[in-house]
Design a protein around this nucleic acid. Structure first.
Lengths: 78, 78
DNA sequence: TTACTAAGATACTCTTAGCCA
DNA sequence: TGGCTAAGAGTATCTTAGTAA
C-alpha cells in the first residue's frame, strides 16, 4: 500500500466510511500475521481457531479434520 | 438479491469480470449454507474445518480451541 | 429458456488537501 | 505531528438490453 495514502484509507476503514476490497484486506492480513479469513469469522473463538489452523501443515489439518468429524458424529449419536 | 439482476451478476462473478462485495458474499454464503469466511480459506482442509467450526456451539469451539492449543504445544516441545 | 456479455448508469473507493487535537 | 475528514477524481460494480446456444 502506498504510504502517502495509507493513513486516510485506514481511517476510512476503521470509521466505517469505506470498506477495503479483498486485495487490500490481504495486505492488511499479511501485515497483522493473520489469515485473510480471520476478518470474516463470526465469533472470537472461530477467529482464534482460524489463526491456529492457518499455521498448521496440511497433514495437521487433515488429522484435525478427522478428529472434529468424529467428535461431531459422537455428539450426534449421543 | 434482486432476481432480475442475479443471473448477470453471478455470471460476472464466476467469470471473474467483477468481484462481489462482502454484503453480497454474505447473501451467497447463507444461500450455500457455508460461513462467510469459507470463501477466504486458502486450502480445502481449512475450508472444510471452517464449515464444521461454524456449526459448533461456543462451548464446542472453546473445547476445540483448548485441544488444538495443547496439540500445538506438544508439537513444539517435541 | 438458460447462460452469458456489452456498455452506460450508478455507486463505490482513493487521493489530495487541509483541519483539529 | 498524528489522527482524522471532505470532496472531487478515478474506478469499480449493477442494471438494462440483447445475443447465443
Amino acid at each position: 500500500m502506498d504510504e502517502s495514502t495509507a493513513s486516510p484509507r485506514m481511517n476510512q476503514y476503521e470509521k466505517g466510511k469505506h470498506t477495503p476490497d479483498v486485495q487490500t484486506l490481504k495486505l492488511i492480513a499479511d501485515e497483522l500475521d493473520v489469515p485473510l479469513n480471520y476478518f470474516f469469522c463470526e465469533s472470537e473463538s472461530s477467529a482464534k481457531l482460524a489463526c491456529i489452523i492457518d499455521k498448521m501443515t496440511e497433514d495437521e489439518k487433515r488429522v484435525l479434520l478427522e478428529h472434529v468429524s468424529k467428535t461431531k458424529l459422537d455428539i450426534k449419536s449421543e
